[in-house]
Design a protein around this nucleic acid. Structure first.
Length: 246
DNA sequence: GCGACAG
DNA sequence: ATCTTGTCGC
């Protein structure tokens, strides 16, 4: 992580497991000062989905990031890492439980993706520092969040048609969107993580939707980490061979 | 004190 | 998140 940040937050890999909630809150408040939500200027060529798979009653975590071409959304590579976590799941502090392993998965990717979409929130957080924003500030990358449940704020139910969305507001400030990603399903919650705007997060998400409720990046990430946990995929970085029909 | 509460 | 079978509905 950037040298300037190394002075104010502990190294995720070695020190997140031992933090108290009070200390974790302090770190989130410090990181918040580095958050940038300016519009994304460069064009997107690849987007990654990040997720974790866990076994019940085990501290082992199967983390992974799957890279897709954009806007084609074809899987081109994936990075898998088996690790452990000691920090418990506490609403509002998901980053401290999942980021150490996700950082390992990210670091072993030779050609970094232009955007990383997390299975969780970014700005849509009580202290505006959900896992997507936390990871983004730590690594200086472009990130966003897509959660299956609301973490904070209030919102009006979006229209029933696919693509309808409403703002999620907290303390008079917009912190994200509630999006009907598919007809007749509960909405998903979208928010920018770091180095992109609210509009960017919504536009990117809409381009990543197909027939499913979850956008392709996180849907594929979830699929891959589960295959990894079941032993059907191996740890490490792997490129997906282009399927040639002749 | 009460309700909410990502994965 | 994960544990689990069938089942209801588009």
């Amino acid at each position: 992580m950037p040298a300037s940040l190394n002075q104010i937050v502990p190294t995720p890999q070695s020190n997140y497991d031992q933090l108290s909630i009070t200390e974790a809150t302090g770190i989130q408040k410090k990181l918040r000062g580095f958050l940038n939500l300016d519009p994304l200027e460069k064009q997107i060529r690849t987007i990654a989905g990040a997720d974790i798979s866990l076994s019940l009653g085990s501290d082992t975590v199967y983390a992974g990031m799957i890279i897709l071409s954009y806007p084609d959304l074809k899987p081109v590579a994936y990075s898998l890492i088996k690790s452990t976590t000691a920090f418990p799941y506490v609403p509002g502090y998901l980053a401290f439980r999942e980021i150490p392993a996700l950082l390992q998965a990210y670091e072993q990717i030779p050609e970094k993706p232009d955007v990383v979409m997390f299975d969780g929130n970014g700005f849509l957080h009580a202290r505006r520092m959900g896992i997507a924003s936390h990871f983004g500030v730590l690594t200086g990358t472009v990130t966003m969040g897509c959660a299956k449940k609301k973490l904070a704020g209030i919102y009006q139910e979006p229209g029933e048609s696919r693509g309808a969305y409403t703002p999620v507001i907290d303390k008079g400030e917009q912190i994200g969107f509630a999006l009907r990603s598919k007809e007749k399903v509960k909405p998903v919650f979208i928010s920018p993580g770091h180095n992109m705007s609210f509009d960017d997060s919504m536009n990117i998400t809409l381009k990543c939707l197909n027939k499913h409720r979850l956008p392709e990046p996180t849907r594929k990430a979830h699929e891959y980490v589960n295959l990894f946990r079941n032993g059907e995929l191996k740890e490490g970085y792997h490129e997906i061979k282009e399927l040639r029909l002749f």
